[in-house]
């Protein structure tokens, strides 16, 4: 197995019309199984970093390699092994999707054309919902779940997808303290169950700090520190 799961060399991202790069000459290498916390002030480029790694944003300079292969916006074949949890995603109450279908949709890129989800796919979905404690909500509309429950459902997608890399952008944002704690525990559980590599952007990292291998600090698009957490594993 490729030991280096994520490798960035001089990676830069500039949004069109902006003079200052959002990500500037970032060098970063993440090994298999690591949990990396990405911290930094608002506007530091944390979300851009995750979106550059999974190819949602094209690099304007440098290179990104994931699982040993060059990542570009067209690499859907790599992205189907990456679970991405966007920061701003919450489903409104009118969202016409059942919870189990939201989780099942994470597997769709892995299922061939003209094929429907198999019994094995459905089993993955129910095991994933079970693992995050949401099996009883499988047939409920996802928009009717609380913010914390929706985050659990999105983490269940990572499990159902059998993702090898987790990119989680503020998984605890807008949650109450109890829900934050539960989500952090689930992040650890999901990472360990999948034996996956994880990068977590978080302002509220205290619950994850003891399990993280590294803390990468970004400021104004640059990596300003990269070290093991104090008291971490």
């Amino acid at each position: 197995m490729e030991d280096r799961v994520v490798e960035l060399h001089n990676a830069s991202v500039s949004y069109s019309g902006e003079r200052v790069a959002t990500l500037l000459n970032v060098d970063l290498s993440i090994s298999h199984g690591e949990m990396t916390l990405v911290v930094g002030p608002n506007g530091a480029g944390k979300t851009t970093l995750l979106e550059a790694i999974n190819g949602l944003l094209p690099l304007t300079g440098g290179t990104a390699r994931v699982f040993g292969e060059r990542m570009t916006p067209s690499r859907d074949d790599l992205r189907c092994h990456i679970a991405y949890l966007p920061q701003e995603l919450f489903f409104d109450p009118e969202t016409p999707f059942l919870t189990q279908d939201v989780v099942c949709a994470a597997r769709f890129a892995l299922i061939r054309l003209f094929r429907f989800p198999s019994p094995a796919d459905r089993r993955y979905v129910h095991e994933a919902l079970d693992a995050v404690g949401m099996n009883t909500a499988a047939k409920r509309p996802v928009g009717r779940l609380s913010g914390g429950q929706q985050r659990k459902v999105l983490l269940a997608r990572a499990l159902a997808q059998r993702a090898r890399l987790l990119l989680l952008d503020e998984p605890t944002v807008n949650l109450d303290p109890q829900a934050k704690k539960e989500i952090c525990q689930l992040v650890k559980q999901v990472q360990s169950e999948l034996a996956a590599t994880a990068m977590v952007v978080s302002h509220e990292a205290e619950h994850l700090l003891e399990d993280a291998n590294r803390v990468v600090t970004l400021d104004q698009g640059r990596v300003v520190s990269d070290h093991a957490p104090v008291g971490g594993r």
């Binding site: 999974n54 949602l56 790599l78 992205r79 679970a83 991405y84 995603l89 890129a109 892995l110 997808q161």
Partner: peptide
Amino acid sequence: KLAQASGL
């Protein structure tokens, strides 16, 4: 975005 991120 979720669909794109999952490889579709």
